[in-house]
């Protein structure tokens, strides 16, 4: 573990992850405020960020409780939101070193920003960079939640402050980093259309999960041929 922290990749992850971690702090503060409004104690809000560490799932479940829903519905929504980590963690799996337990532990560090950042673009991931970016994100996620949960009620009406726009804006920033090819732009547009079309007819979380099917555009012969060319050019074995 110490060797990982000392590695160049880990430090690069911390540096590259820092701006996202600062934005994550603001996001986490808005989560702390929401949790407070949903009737969570300060400790419960902080604990949730510390042990769940998954922004969209936390927002989804706590919003349901704030709207009067029960724990069952809240956990179900969180699971659906987090279902995207299944393909994401499967993608990063081959890039993790160590035995099954160690890899399972490293899998806990997978969050959207560091996952997207550590992707090398050829299907492999920089493990140390991911761990570095997730570490700093974790610190600001938990402290931000604490600030929001403890002092958020001093802010007054949070809707009037536009805090609900922070979460989608954060993800839009991540998305813009990904749109470097025409195919990626096409997949993003398709994913957005699928998700929006499903919103009125499916429970929360399902639209995003089903939208991941847009990535099947990668199965076209052309997409695979381009990937093989790029891998050969980089001399990467995988």
């Amino acid at each position: 573990m110490l060797a990982v922290i000392r590695s160049e990749g880990f430090r690069r992850g911390v540096r590259q992850g820092a701006p996202f971690a600062v934005a994550g702090f603001i996001l986490a503060a808005s989560f702390g405020i929401l949790a407070d409004e949903a009737g969570f104690s300060e400790l419960a809000a902080i604990l949730m960020s510390a042990i769940v560490f998954a922004g969209s799932a936390q927002f989804a479940s706590v919003s349901i409780i704030a709207a009067g829903g029960g724990a069952g519905a809240a956990v179900a929504a969180a699971s659906l939101m987090n279902s995207r980590f299944l393909p994401m963690s499967a993608a990063v799996g081959p890039s993790f070193s160590g035995g099954p337990l160690k890899r399972a532990a490293k899998g806990q560090a997978v969050v959207d920003a560091s996952w997207a950042m550590s992707s090398r673009g050829d299907g492999s991931f920089d493990e140390q960079l991911l761990l570095g970016a997730s570490t700093i994100a974790y610190v600001t996620w938990v402290t931000g939640t604490a600030v929001g949960a403890i002092w958020g009620d001093k802010l007054g009406d949070t809707d009037a402050l536009g805090l609900d726009a922070i979460f989608p804006a954060f993800f839009l920033g991540l998305l813009l980093n990904e749109l470097h090819s025409g195919r990626a732009r096409g997949v993003a547009a398709l994913g957005a259309v699928i998700a929006v079309a499903l919103v009125p007819i499916t429970p929360p979380g399902i639209p995003v999960l089903v939208a991941s099917l847009a990535s099947l555009m990668g199965l076209t012969r052309r997409a695979r041929a381009e990937l093989e060319l790029r891998q050969e050019a980089e001399g990467a074995p995988r």
Binding site: S119, L175, V187, L190, S215
Partner: peptide, 10 residues
């Protein structure tokens, strides 16, 4: 896998 993240983020 490469295309998962634009799909999910969008």
């Amino acid at each position: 896998v490469i295309l998962l993240s634009p799909a999910l983020l969008a």
